[in-house]
């Protein structure tokens, strides 16, 4: 009886989180590609702009943020695609639990496999792009908070385009405008620190964005999936 009650209490969050992490572990090659993309594109910047440290220093924070955004965007397309194709998305839609909670589990798994690795790799890229060392901690903090927002907002876009054959490009088009405030305050956090200002205010705004998107995005994604997955 106790186990039955516990199963009733389970919102589906933990189950979907565990499932997606397990799937990611079994396809670790796929999971690594956003991080590899992140590192490879950073090689293009000295080649395309300039190898001079003084020049790179100015653009480092913004560039790392742009690359993190693009890497997240590339990985966003796959969030629901395989579930939609093998039918497990429909199973999720007909479960008695509230839909936003299993979705939040999926999004958390997505962040743990893309946003978190990107955040952890970012100081290395900061070093390569000669970001001043005071910028490392703000960079990691802002990416940790900001990439969660990117995953959450991206999930709404992924839900809106899941049943479209060429959804990937459209997804970027839909989601990019919503990423712009995140990148503004993400880079502001780092550049404030580099300029010797208090970098907590922009980080706090990122935190507010995180709070708002964690509350609203799963609801919007659930509403979107109910529309799109039935088509």
């Amino acid at each position: 009886m106790a186990s039955q009650a516990a199963r009733k209490m389970d919102s589906g969050f933990a189950a979907w989180l565990r499932r997606d992490l397990l799937l990611a572990y079994r396809r670790s090659g796929e999971v690594a590609s956003p991080v590899i993309f992140f590192i490879m594109v950073s090689t293009l910047i000295p080649l395309g702009l300039t190898p001079e440290a003084a020049q790179l220093e100015k653009v480092a924070a913004g560039m790392i943020w742009v690359m993190a955004l693009l890497a997240t965007l590339l990985s966003m397309d796959g969030l629901f695609t395989s579930d939609y194709q093998d039918g497990s998305l429909e199973q999720m839609l007909i479960t008695p639990q509230l839909l936003p909670l299993p979705l939040l589990g999926k999004i958390t798994a997505h962040w743990l496999t893309t946003g978190l690795p990107l955040t952890l790799v970012s100081p290395l890229l900061g070093l390569m792009l000669s970001l001043p060392s005071v910028g490392y901690l703000p960079l990691v903090c802002s990416l940790a908070l900001g990439t969660v927002c990117l995953s959450l907002v991206g999930a709404v876009g992924a839900a809106l385009t899941v049943s479209l054959r060429k959804g990937g490009l459209l997804l970027s088009l839909l989601v990019m405008p919503f990423y712009m405030p995140v990148i503004i305050f993400g880079t502001a956090t780092v550049s404030y620190a580099v300029d010797g200002l208090n970098w907590l205010p922009p980080l706090a705004i990122l935190g507010a964005m995180f709070a708002a998107s964690v509350a609203l995005c799963p609801l919007a994604a659930a509403g979107a999936l109910r529309v799109t997955a039935s088509n």
């Binding site: 709404v156 809106l160 385009t161 049943s163 479209l164 959804g167 459209l170 088009l173 839909l174 405008p177 919503f178 919007a220 509403g223 979107a224 529309v227 799109t228 039935s230 088509n231």
Partner: peptide, 23 residues
């Protein structure tokens, strides 16, 4: 773009309504 991406009128309307609200 979302409006024109769907063939079904109903899906196009509801999906872009959600996007407009998020916007």
């Amino acid at each position: 773009a979302l409006q024109y991406a769907y063939h079904s009128v109903d899906a196009a309307s509801r999906a872009s309504a959600i996007l407009a609200l998020v916007g």
